[in-house]
Amino acid sequence: MTAAVVARPALDRPVRAPLGRLLVSELRWILRRPRTIIAIVLLSLVPVLIGVGTVIAGNANAGPGGNGPGSLFTILIGNGFVLPVLSLTLLLAMLLPLLGAMSAADALAGESNHGTLRGLLIAPVSRARLLGVKAFGVGTVVFIATAAVALVGLVTGVILVGTDGLITLTGNTLSFGDALARIGLSVVWVTFQVWAVAAIALAVSAFTEHPLVVMAATLAGALVFAILTVIPQLDWMQPYLLTTGWTSLTDVLRDPMPWDGLIDSTLKAACYLLIGLSVAYARLSTKDG
C-alpha cells in the first residue's frame, strides 16, 4: 500500500497529454473509419470517370464556345493537366464540402453520440484543445481527399493524354514543373475552402448528438447559398457568400495567374473558419459533458 502511495505522480500542477500524440491518435481514428476511406476512394474515382468520358466523347461536344463549366471540358481534350483542376472544380461544388461536413459530423456529434467525447473530456483533454484536434483532423481528411483527387487526376491525365505540358485558358503552354505547382496550389486552396465549410459544420456538430443533423444542415446551407446566388435582388449578399469565390479556382489555369480572386476567397474562407470555430468553441466550452 505504501509503495502505491509513493509511486503516485504529484498532484500540484496541470498535466496535458503531448499534442502530437493527440493529433496522431485522432488521425489513426479517422483513417480507420470505413466510411472516410470509402468516401475518399469514391471521390478520387471522379477524375478517372471525367477523363475517360471526355476521351471517349472526343471532340463531339466541343461546340462553339459556351461559357458554362462545360467549356472547361473543351480545353481538357488533349490537355491532361487540366483534369485535376477540372475535377476539383466539379467536386468543390458539392461533394468535397459534404465530405468535410461528414468528417465534422463524426468529429463532435458522432463522438458525442458514441459517448466517447466524454471519455476525452475526462482524460482530460481541455475543450479548446479538443476543438483544435478536431479541426486538425477534419482539415487533414479534406486535404487527403483533395490531394487524392488531384493525384489520380494527374495520373489519369498523363496516361490518357501525355506529358506535353499544361495549356492554360490564356492559350500558352506551361512546363511540367509549372503545371505541378499550379495543381499543388489548387489542392491547398481547395482544402482551405472546404475546411472553412467544415468549420461551420463543426459548429453545428457541437450543438447536436446526431451526425445526420450536421449533414442535413450543411446540405441545406449549400442549397440556401446556391439560391441566394441566383436571386438578383440579393446580389449585394454575394460578396459575403463563401461559394461565390469558388469560380476563381479556374484562375490557376490562366497565365499570368490572377491572384485577386484566389486571395480574396482565401481571406473569406479564413473569416468563415474563424466564425465556425468560434461558435463551436463557445458551444463546446459551455456544453455539459
Partner: peptide, 26 residues
Amino acid sequence: VEGPGFHPFLSGRENLRRIASAEPLM
C-alpha cells in the same frame, strides 16, 4: 460514467489505445 463509450468500428485494443493517448500521465 453512463456506460462505456467506444467506437464500434475499432477493436477493443484500438479503442483503449485511443483513450490511453489522451491520458496526460501516460
